[in-house]
């Protein structure tokens, strides 16, 4: 089976209005820039987007936001985005915030076929509202559900034609768990190589999780807060 597609436009075929889509990345680090751009140029709207953050005003998921393509956002931290705040306060956008580790584990569990599990994060807070609470070994936990998506879109440094992926440094973040949790997972990579050329010891995401892959182009890799020492 050929997993390789030509570009982002071909990769996002089948993403329809109203679908749930996961986007890898933390802030602007490790985001699937090519697919985000292609989606922003499409007419798809009313998306439920699952991503740790919401991008910035003119880059990343912020572009989908500005074009009103999002109905619901599921995230853990959405600061640094004025348009997001505006749409949230005006009621144009529904936002579901949850603890970052809970979000990561819900995605991991979804990809691993685990429908529900218990975590301590959020016990006694508004995150607990409406959820089952149980005590284990004298500590209180709340039940969280596994998360999956119609499509997951991830970005890796290297990928091969069988969909095996290797991430770079902290650009892994949510990409690996999300790659496991999409009914269809799209991987865009900086460098696409023939299968058999990546070291099997170094693979982060085995190709079984990936259905479509392509080599992206013109990566901007913007830095949100450039912090240097003198």
């Amino acid at each position: 089976m050929n997993k390789v597609v030509n570009d982002a436009y071909e990769a996002i075929r089948g993403i329809e209005s109203g679908m749930t889509v996961m986007f890898g990345g933390f802030g602007l680090c490790g985001i699937p820039e090519n697919c985000l751009k292609a989606l922003a140029e499409s007419t798809v709207d009313r998306l439920t987007c699952i991503s740790n953050n919401a991008g910035v005003d003119n880059f990343g998921l912020g572009v989908l936001l500005r074009k009103h393509q999002m109905k619901t956002m599921i995230a853990s931290y959405v600061g640094e985005n004025k348009e997001f705040e505006r749409q949230l306060l005006s009621g144009e956008l529904e936002v579901i915030l949850m603890p970052q580790g809970t979000l990561a584990e819900r995605i991991r569990a979804g990809g691993a076929g685990i429908p529900a599990f218990f975590v301590p994060a959020g016990y006694g807070t508004e995150v607990q509202e409406g959820k089952e609470v149980r005590e284990f070994n004298g500590k209180m936990y709340i039940m969280e559900l596994g998360l999956t998506a119609d499509f997951s879109i991830v970005k890796a440094k290297y990928g091969d034609t069988k969909g095996n992926l290797i991430y770079n440094k902290t650009a892994n973040n949510f990409n690996h768990p999300m790659a496991t949790a999409g009914k269809i997972t799209i991987a865009e990579v900086e460098e696409l190589v023939p299968f058999g050329t990546l070291d099997p010891n170094q693979i982060h995401t085995p190709g079984v999780f990936v259905q479509r892959i392509f080599q992206g182009k013109d990566y901007e890799k913007r830095i949100e807060f450039l912090t240097t020492r003198s």
Partner: peptide, 11 residues
């Protein structure tokens, strides 16, 4: 802004 990882950390 959201809780980020703070709830997981303190729990």
């Amino acid at each position: 802004k959201g809780m980020g990882g703070a709830m997981d950390l303190v729990a």
